[in-house]
């Protein structure tokens, strides 16, 4: 029987919990269910391609599989902005999960990626949360913040009145430590913990800035088509299952990590006061419409999202 070996480039560094929990898990599941006929060779973030180039490499079939953040595929995927999260849209992780799998946003993503020879599967949905050096108790506290941010959230935080600037991951710890910035987001609790941010910023801000499918697994359609049909089905089913397993497991680990940070490092949860939350939501909503303008599909997704949020009683 023919065996296949896929090169898989991750956007997670090896120490990231998702590298093991998502990617190594998937590797083991696939090897087991195909009786060893499909093997994955995993590469850490940046080992072969810069994370931002992984979509192109998979699209060209140079890599058989990769993990990305939807933001890295923005130039191709007009839905990427909505996939990587509109600020303050969902309030619970299950809502985002239902939006993807129940309402069909996942299928929309898959259809758009298919145009580039890529099979798209969201790895998990989860929140992005900030850590800050001093608690946010008033709106003024928030607007005085210098926050390390990136991409759409940087724009959002700036619009909302904070001073958001981009600092590369390699300099984040020092910047937060010395006070170049006094807040940052890097995933949520697990991300902050892995980057050592709790050592220098003791307040974990909730609710999250967004909840979204911020990690995605992409497979080269060419590589997928080369597999016998039974194996293709195994891959697709494993990816579908991955979403639920990982979303749930990630939430669990978030809570455990946060509890550990609270216990061992003296971290406190800083719940944003209602008026701060309300003002942030208002700013956020005024920015959502931008994302719809990228394409008809994006507009369709945005309309669907708004109808859904209305149904949930949030709009």
């Amino acid at each position: 029987q023919e065996t296949f070996t896929w090169k898989v480039q991750s956007h997670w560094p090896g120490a990231s919990s998702s590298y093991t929990d998502s990617l190594v898990r998937l590797k083991n599941v696939l090897e087991e269910r195909t009786d060893g006929r499909l093997k994955l060779t995993l590469y850490e973030s940046g080992a072969l391609f810069k994370a931002q180039e992984t979509f192109n490499a998979v699209s060209r079939g140079i890599l058989e599989m990769g993990t990305i953040s939807p933001a890295y595929a923005q130039d191709k995927m007009t839905l990427a902005g909505i996939a990587s999260g509109l600020p303050f849209a969902f309030r619970n992780v299950w809502e985002a999960a239902y939006f993807h799998q129940g309402l069909g946003f996942e299928q929309m993503l898959r259809d758009e990626a298919a145009q580039y020879g890529v099979y798209w599967a969201t790895d998990k949905v989860y929140p992005t949360e900030m850590v800050v050096k001093n608690p946010i108790k008033t709106w003024d506290d928030f607007t005085r913040l210098k926050i390390r941010s990136s991409g759409a959230l940087q724009k959002f935080l700036t619009e909302a009145g904070a001073a958001a600037s981009y600092i590369p991951g390699g300099e984040l710890y020092s910047a937060l430590d010395s006070g170049v910035v006094d807040g940052a987001h890097w995933g949520a609790a697990q991300g902050a913990y892995s980057m050592g941010l709790y050592e220098v910023a003791k307040y974990h801000v909730q609710p999250g800035l967004n909840i979204a499918g911020t990690d995605a697994i992409i497979v080269s359609q060419k590589a997928l088509d080369k597999l016998p049909e039974d194996m293709q089905l195994i891959v697709k089913q494993a990816l579908a299952e991955q979403f639920w397993v990982r979303t749930n497991e990630y939430l669990f680990k978030e809570r455990v990590t946060l509890a550990k940070a609270i216990k061992e490092m003296g971290v406190e949860v800083n719940t944003l006061p209602d008026d701060v939350q309300n003002r942030l939501v208002k700013t956020a909503q005024s920015m959502w419409d931008e994302e719809g303008k990228r394409s008809d599909k994006a507009q369709e997704a945005l309309d669907m999202l708004k109808a859904y949020l209305t149904e949930l009683g949030y709009l």
Binding site: G14, A15, E44, Y173, D177, S194, G196, E199, V200
Partner: peptide
């Protein structure tokens, strides 16, 4: 620190 998970500080 990023690859091994130890503290940068």
């Amino acid at each position: 620190a990023l690859i091994t998970g130890v503290s940068v500080g």
